[in-house]
Write a protein that binds this DNA or RNA. Structure first.
Lengths: 179, 179
DNA sequence: GAGAAGTTGTTACGGCCGTAACAATACTCA
DNA sequence: TGAGTATTGTTACGGCCGTAACAACTTCTC
């Protein structure tokens, strides 16, 4: 494979392959007829790609080495803030299915990080609660995750970070009603 | 989604549970000592949450009803733009593992949407190519996905959409070197 | 040339997630 | 009260994804 002893205008110096593809796709779509929308593609693509890279990075760098997963950590983090909580409520605030919560709790319970407790007033219900080790694990992982998130976002200034959070919030609040 | 009779300072009107949780978590973190970072949390949370909702929505609304998946569609879309391509290159531009590509290609091949072709010059290699039905499927799904993406982003003006794409691009280009 | 080293694609395994179906329990309202 | 309905949690199944191991093949190096 030849690499790159070429005469490029030094724009694409160290542009990673996913961004090179995105730029190419955007050009192609811009030359297409109306159903295509190069701007919508670019926005959606960059959003999903960044989320994917961030998730993968946090998972492999922070959580897997500690025997956790990112979804498992996020669930524990919620329990840390909220205290013992029913699975149905965890599913609600995560916009996830109840079965996904069941699966995650099963994995965490196997690891001794979380436990299920019956609810006296309701024979169907259960609350999930952090164990002592679970709380220690979530504190530790939280510090590391925060450190890593800050690294990801250092390329933006404080105003830009706030701006981005605001834009994301706007879209989330205006989400299509028929989800 | 026209006029907004919702300019009241009233709290928690129709704020969905995930955003209510985010606001609560942000407050709690803002009151914690330094390792915690409410701003970093809010940015990362909103980013990941939006990506998750968008992925889920596109998957269940556009692709599953047509017998596709979002990852399957995204792979086919790349093949549509790039033509027959080796798995290793698809993995590269998707920042995915080779085995993930193998799995996706297996599923698509079972559905007759994609086919593998040997490469004469290299006995190890294979190229993946759209079949005729695959190309028809990707064209159709692409039009629908674009329509839906535009719906998601209509709450932003053109300048804001460009701004957001630019901010996402900045972070992606400046991604930590040690991924 | 021949052996070492690298590349490519695949498989096995485990975790995540959704849908659909189910049992157990709670609620509704004639 | 009691039948019908709704909610809660779980399981089964299939798709996605990563890591690790592997076979087949290519390329490098002597």
């Amino acid at each position: 494979m030849n690499s790159e002893p070429d005469t490029r205008p030094d724009l694409a110096m160290d542009v990673p392959p996913d961004l090179r593809y995105a730029a190419y796709a955007r050009e192609r779509l811009a030359a297409m007829s109306p159903p295509a929308d190069a701007e919508a593609f670019a926005l959606a693509y960059h959003l999903l790609q960044l989320a994917y890279l961030l998730v993968t990075d946090l998972e492999t760098r922070i959580h897997r080495p500690r025997g956790l997963t990112l979804p498992g950590f996020r669930l524990m983090f919620k329990l840390w803030l909220l205290g013992p909580t029913q699975p149905v409520r965890l599913a609600e605030i995560s916009a996830m299915s109840r079965s996904a919560v069941t699966n995650a709790v099963n994995t965490l319970e196997r690891g001794g990080l979380v436990e299920r407790r019956p609810v006296p007033e309701d024979g169907r219900a259960v609350v999930v609660a952090l164990t002592t080790e679970g709380e220690a694990a979530v504190r530790d992982a939280f510090a590391e995750q925060t450190r890593r998130e800050r690294e990801w976002f250092t390329c933006l200034g404080p105003a830009e970070r706030e701006q981005m959070t605001a834009l994301l919030s706007r879209i989330l609040r205006a989400r299509p009603a028929d989800l």
